[in-house]
């Protein structure tokens, strides 16, 4: 019997597929998320929209809050550590939660290196804007990838962009003759063995979710069509007018993303979505997706 193998780490992400992982900031929100059919919750102190509004340094959440949320639900609990902050990740592992998100939504702790995730028993999910970034994170031990999008905006455009970059990169590698793969690995800045694996299998070695801008059931369906295997919804639920109803609708849309008649029904009467942000009006320094190396 062998614990915390890569198969068990990546396997939990496989169990989350087709589901919605929701950001929650209190135990009560976690219960609402679970009732609405969330397959996991992300425990944090502030949703990305508030992090963006408040400014300052965003760090790992207070363990007290994470424990309260863990005790409120039976579904898996994730929490965020800063990029490169392996001690925050050690603390999260010690809390006995289920997944660590090494996240660009928090202020990076290291402006050159990410966490060596192979050293941990707890699995990690990491953000990526393109295939090279995804494969670097997997090379470091990430057991799940999420396209980054632009968190806290309620604007799907960057999520679509990053998802298309990743899936387009996969298709390009798949179509490439084998003798071009080393150069492709150099250009992508990605480990050769992973490049070769993607060339052979036509998919990432781990599960791919989409994050950063999903605010409506239609958004969730859109990214599932584009190759996401599930979705993270951050600010989109609890910054909307009627979180419980919207949460359930996004869960249903993720399951039935290929069924427009059902989506039409699911999307009715949900109240106001979160107020969105135009990406072009955000100052360059306040864009989160560029964090990660």
């Amino acid at each position: 019997m062998e614990k915390s193998t890569f198969k068990t780490k990546a396997g939990l992400a496989q169990m989350l597929k087709g589901g919605v992982i929701m950001d929650v900031v209190t135990a009560d929100q976690a219960k609402i998320a679970e009732e609405a059919g969330a397959c996991a919750v992300m425990a944090l102190e502030r949703v990305p929209a508030d992090i963006r509004r408040d400014g300052g340094v965003a760090r790992m959440s207070d363990p007290e809050l994470i424990i309260q949320i863990r005790e409120a639900v039976t579904i898996p609990v994730m929490a965020k550590a800063r990029i490169g902050h392996f001690v925050e990740a050690q603390i999260l592992q010690a809390l006995g939660i289920d997944y660590v998100d090494e996240s660009e939504v928090l202020t990076p702790a290291d402006n050159r290196y990410h966490i060596d995730k192979h050293e941990f028993e707890i699995p990690f999910v990491c953000g990526a804007r393109d295939l090279g970034e995804a494969l670097r994170r997997i090379g470091e031990g990430a057991a799940m990838i999420r396209s980054k999008g632009e968190a806290g905006t309620g604007n799907i455009v960057e999520a679509v962009h990053h998802l298309r970059e990743i899936t387009g990169g996969i298709k390009a590698l798949q179509a490439m003759p084998k003798d071009e793969l080393m150069t492709a690995a150099r250009d992508l800045g990605a480990p050769y063995d992973l490049v070769k694996e993607v060339h052979e299998t036509g998919k990432l070695p781990v599960v791919l979710f989409c994050a950063g801008g999903i605010a409506t059931p239609a958004d969730a369906s859109l990214v599932m069509h584009l190759g996401a295997e599930g979705v993270f919804v951050g600010s989109g639920i609890f910054k909307s007018e009627d979180p419980a109803t919207r949460a359930k609708a996004i869960v249903e849309a993720t399951t039935n993303y290929r069924n427009p008649e059902m989506l039409a029904n699911i999307s009715r009467g949900l109240g106001e979505p979160m107020r969105g942000l135009e990406i072009g009006q955000i100052e360059e320094a306040e864009l989160l997706a560029g964090r990660g190396w």
């Binding site: 193998t5 198969k7 068990t8 169990m15 898996p76 289920d98």
Partner: peptide
């Protein structure tokens, strides 16, 4: 327990096979 207690094990299931079958237990 939590995800940290997920594991792999080889199981003998006589009705199905005489040889151990690799299995994965996740939460």
């Amino acid at each position: 327990g939590s995800q940290l207690d997920s594991f792999e094990a080889d199981l003998v299931m006589p009705p199905i096979s005489d040889d151990p079958i690799p299995t994965v237990f996740i939460r």
